[in-house]
Write a protein that binds this DNA or RNA. Sequence first.
DNA 1: TACCAGGCAACTT
DNA 2: AAGTTGCATGGT
Length: 266
Amino acid sequence: MIIKCNNLNIKQIADSGQTFRWYERKDHYVVVANHRAVSMTQLSDGIELDDENSIWKHYLDIDRDYNAIMTHYKGKDDFLDAAMDYGSGIRILNQDPFETIMTFIISANNNIKRITSSVLALSNNFGTYLKTIDGVDYYDFPTPEQLREVSVESFRNCGVGYRDKYLYGCVQDILNKKIDLEAIKSLSDIELRQALMRLKGIGEKVANCVILFAYARYEGFPVDTWIKKVLSEHYGIEKDHKIFVESYFKPYGGIAQQYLFFYGRR
DNA sequence: TACCAGGCAACTT
DNA sequence: AAGTTGCATGGT
């Protein structure tokens, strides 16, 4: 399947820190999502996928006009202009809430390489086999049900460190309906964030990642160490980040944040 | 060797 | 309410 789309750069999305399941291979990428593993190739005016399912258009947020969003911010300040120019192929993916919750719990005080390896270990150890591509087996991210009997120690063995107990508790809380990841879709941005923060291991930053990357809430503006550095060095903001970013970058703060993160971390 | 990485919960003041 | 501290682990 060929998807025509400007503002879609595979490498930029893979390196943007919103997903940890885009794998760079020789002349293409392998993307694991939507209970599938696909081969994705960059074209000059879009991408080619070896899969016909229309879910990928939603996953890649194809119907949203990112050019219009960038136009909205154009000229606001030099740093954001440069960031949008540098990362103009980034899109905000529509990812699975459970997978996003688990991977961003792992992300806390961690680095992208190790997050990626932990997510791979969780999938290979506990997820459903999907496909073999060029001799590599790909597994789906496990469901809560598949993780029901997984112990704190088994999580630890995936390299997640002290976050093991948070992952375990999160799975149990979902299975026990302390939180319903489908039902909370109807909540407001603020209520949704608060609902997620009831889970151990999810603070304000991780909750913002989840509402942005899994619930398409662009009010979510994750402030991590890189964004703090950007705000400090280029906007003169040392504290009260929240107050500044919520007014300055609205109404697509989360999208602007992705450009800033990607450019600031280069 | 110390410091850092898409922070958080628990504790202290 | 606001500030401080410990935390697994691999990379630099």
